[in-house]
Every structure is written in C-alpha cells, then in structure tokens.
Design a protein around this nucleic acid. Structure first.
Length: 434
RNA sequence: GGCCCUAUCGUCUAACGGUUAGGACGCCGGCUUUUCAAGCCGUUAAUCCGGGUUCGAUUCCCGGUAGGGUCACCA
C-alpha cells in the first residue's frame, strides 16, 4: 500500500490533443494498471486566459472513449491554496524572493523567483538512464506570477507531491524542465518521483506532431470511423514493443505485457496507414452483433444485418462501411436490379446463346438445392464452371444477381438473396438476352 | 547559438558481443470464387560515418554527422 504506483496524465486544456498526447496517456495508464496502481488525470488550467472548458471536455471525452478511465480527476486551479502556502514557505525561508522586473509589454513588474543554488544536477530517467545538467544555466527562474498565481513548474511539483504521484511519465520535451522541478522539490523537502521521458511522436515530415501543422485531434479519428481499441493498440506500439512479435492486443493484454524497459528512446513517426491496418484488424475481431452495434451508433444510415460479414471483411473503417452502403454498393439486396445486355456478356467472352445455356444450367442446379448456403451453392456450380469456363458461367451469374460491374462473388450473392430471388433474377437475365 | 536527448529496411520495430540482421505496415509481383475488395504466397529493402576495445561489434567507449527537444511571467 505504501508503495502503490500512481501515475498521472496532466494536459492543459488550451487546445485539442493529438495522437502523440494520448500516447503519453496510454503509457501512463498501462504502467499504473500493470502495477495495480492508480491513474490520475489532472487538468493543468493555471493559464487562465488560454484554458477553455470545451477543451477540457474534449480531453475527458476522448480519454473515456479510448478506454482509459481515471481513478481520480483534479484541476490544478482547485489547488491554489496549497500552491500559495508552499510559495509563502519558500519566501519566508528566502529560497524564493519577490523580484522587481524591468517594465515590458504584457509582463508584470513584480514576479517571484527561485534562488538557484547553481550546481550540477543528475537525475535517473527510467528510460534513458542518468541525465546530468548544470542548473546554473537556468538562473533564478520564475516560479510564480504572484503569490496566488504559480507558474507550471511550481504547481506541478506541489500537485505531484500532494497527489502521491510516484511515476511521472511524460514527453521528452519535458526533460529540460525536470532539473528545475527537482530543485523546487528539494527546496520544499519533497521526495522526487521516478521520471520516465517518452520519445516524441513525429509527423510524417519528422517534426514534432502539432495541431498547427494539421495533426488530427483524437475525436477526428473517432468521427472518421476508427475503433478506440485500434487506436489504443496502435498508440501502445508506437514507442513500445512486447517481448515477442505480437501486434494485435486487447487492453487487457497490453496491461499484462507492458513494461517501461521496452520503451524506445528514439522518436517515432505517426503512420496513419498502419493505423488503418490496425483498425481493420480490430473490426474483423468484432462479432457481427458488436460490429452492427458500432455501426448503428456511428450512423443513421440503415444497414441490413445480412451484409455485416461482408462489411467487416471489406471496410477498414466504420465510415468506409457506411459510405459503401450509402453509395448503393449493396442496393441489389432490396431493390430490383437492372443492367445492360453488354454488361451481362462483358466478362463471359462467349456468344450469348452459350451464356443462355449456362444460365439455364445454373437455374436447374440451384433449384435442386435445399439449404441454399454459400457452400452448397458453390458445390453445385463451381465444378460445372470449371469444366466449361469459369468466366462464362460466373460472370453472367454475378451480374444477373447484382446488376453491377463490381460486387461480392456470385455464391455469396445467391446465398444472401435466397433461393427464390436468385432464381427469379437468373430468369430475368435470360429475358435480357432474348 | 548554449544545454539536453536520439540514431537498424520508406515507416513501426526485434536482435541486451557470435543470427543468412528477424517480424509487421506499405510498395511491388503471383494465386484465388476469371469483377472490386478481402485473403493466401512471394520479392524488394536497413545497422549514419570514422576511430578504438575485443578472437569477434547493430550491440561497449570516443569523435564527427544528422535529426529532435529546450532555452517564457505557456503548460
């Protein structure tokens, strides 16, 4: 109990967060859960001008959607009393002091600075090992705008301590902030948490992922029909790797396998193509009912439950599935088909009398069937098709059933349509030829 | 520019001194229910450079180069 692991994700609600940001949350969450610990979300809203409620809501919504529930939620702004107390303590001890500043545009004339001991400082990063810097370079840095307005470094240190954070898992861009935070911890007599600085997630142009350069917010991926489990899976493997070559993970498996020691040091590029592959894999892993439910939650477009298996196989995202349905790719199921004679003959490459013969033969074979399953239909038709020429039999059959140039294979179509409708359409094809 | 971090196929990565440098995505090619997808099979492709240490370096050390981060009264 005394050594219970507590991690935190501490975003500032000053904008929408992208995949790289959430990757940090994923790692902090997995590490906490792996160790039976707690995952805390702390909204860092000390910048009162730029913090917005809508961003906070978006962040919380995204975290919930991804499947990263927090054990506790804090807002930094609610802790101002504690910050003020700690600040006064340091001032009383003359470790911090009120500094008169040269008047500048948009700046205060008075701020609170930290008396820097100016010495070399080494901390052990759980991913990178010892990191040494000389704090002299920092000078007497500012820790608060006033007694009631602490700056990031100060508030973070006090909060991490108050909230019992044992492991600070954050982006590499915070490495250079760590020494000054440790300095404040020491001045306050606090123990330092373990630091683990994650490699950055880069855009395809090798620069830090940023909203400004078009990095998508997580909610955009949701709107584009990505599955949260696919994004989670992809994010977990961006900068971390299991012992073996397993790639597809459920969240439970990730928690079980996750290990700080297998985190990468070098930055990684966010690859949307691979994410798409993960998404399709996770779609395929969904049961038909589950997939149907996800589609229903995603769109108002009515979707026939019988085509769910086809959609699962063919669509990489929910949006793709919906778009295909909306574009009429499966309309042959409930609408009558119509097509030209040319299309019916196009792929057959034999005279139309021969096609008629084949169609008659198909009808005859199918009429004898009792179950009308995909396999039964295939067994009835395929040997014949192979014997006389597959294209000559299968192409017209497929067009007769779908009315389209592109469609699923003829056996699947027939089983979906049912015996009666299938035979009716094959007869209609004979009429077209006449 | 100062300080810090990093460096294996195009991309994500495995190999914690000895491997034909492995896997996945993508690309390309082939097969398939002569369509579109999916699926299956296969091909292509990498240790940044230079010095050490060692019988032996992707792996350890040093230097260079390159990339990134950070130098706010933003977090």
């Amino acid at each position: 109990m005394a050594n219970k692991v507590v991690t935190r994700f501490a975003p500032s609600p000053t904008g929408l967060l992208h995949g790289g940001n959430y990757r940090t949350a994923v790692f902090a969450y997995l590490f906490a859960k792996k160790n039976g610990g707690e995952f805390i979300v702390r909204i860092e809203d000390t910048d009162r001008e730029r913090s917005k409620k809508e961003y906070e809501e978006n962040i919380l919504e995204s975290l919930a959607w991804l499947g990263l529930p927090h054990d506790k939620l804090y807002r930094q702004s609610e802790h101002v009393k504690r910050h003020e107390e700690a600040l006064k303590t340091l001032i009383a001890k003359d470790i911090a002091y009120v500094s008169e500043e040269a008047q500048e545009e948009g700046k205060r004339s008075q701020v609170i600075r930290f008396r820097n001991p100016k010495e070399p400082l080494t901390f052990i990063d759980a991913i990178r090992g010892p990191i040494t810097t000389d704090t002299t370079d920092l000078g007497d840095f500012v820790i608060a705008r006033s007694e009631t307005e602490p700056v990031f470094h100060f508030a973070v240190v006090v909060d991490d301590s108050d909230e019992g954070i044992t492991h600070v898992i954050r982006g590499e861009d915070h490495i250079s902030n760590t020494p000054r935070q440790i300095l404040i911890q020491r001045a306050l007599g606090l123990t330092s948490p373990v630091y683990a600085h994650l490699p950055l997630v880069l855009d395809s142009d090798r620069t830090k992922l940023s909203k400004r350069r078009g990095a998508k917010a997580l909610t955009e991926y949701r709107d584009e029909g990505y599955l949260p489990e696919a994004i989670l899976n992809y994010l977990a493997l961006l900068g971390w790797h299991p012992k073996d070559n397993q790639e597809l993970f459920s969240i439970g498996e990730l928690i079980k396998e996750f290990d700080l020691s297998r985190i990468q040091k070098g930055a990684g590029i966010f690859d949307e193509t691979k994410l798409l592959w993960f998404n399709h894999e996770h779609i395929k892993r969904l049961s038909n009912d589950e997939f149907f439910g996800r589609l229903a939650a995603y769109t108002k477009t009515p979707i026939h439950s019988s085509i769910i298996p086809l959609l699962k196989e063919r669509a990489q995202t929910l949006k793709e599935a919906v778009d295909a349905v909306a574009a009429g790719e499966y309309s042959f199921l409930d609408e009558d088909v119509s097509y030209s004679k040319e299309l019916l003959l196009q792929g057959a490459k034999v005279p139309e009398e021969v096609v008629s013969q084949h169609l008659n033969k198909i009808i005859e074979s199918l009429e004898a069937l009792s179950n009308f399953t995909n396999d039964e239909i295939k067994n009835a038709i395929f040997p014949y098709a192979t014997e006389v020429g597959r294209g000559a039999v299968l192409w017209p059959m497929r067009v007769a059933l779908s009315g389209k140039e592109k469609s699923p294979d003829p056996f699947t179509l027939a089983s979906l349509l049912g015996k009666e409708k299938t035979i009716q359409r094959l007869r209609a094809a004979l009429t077209v030829l006449k």
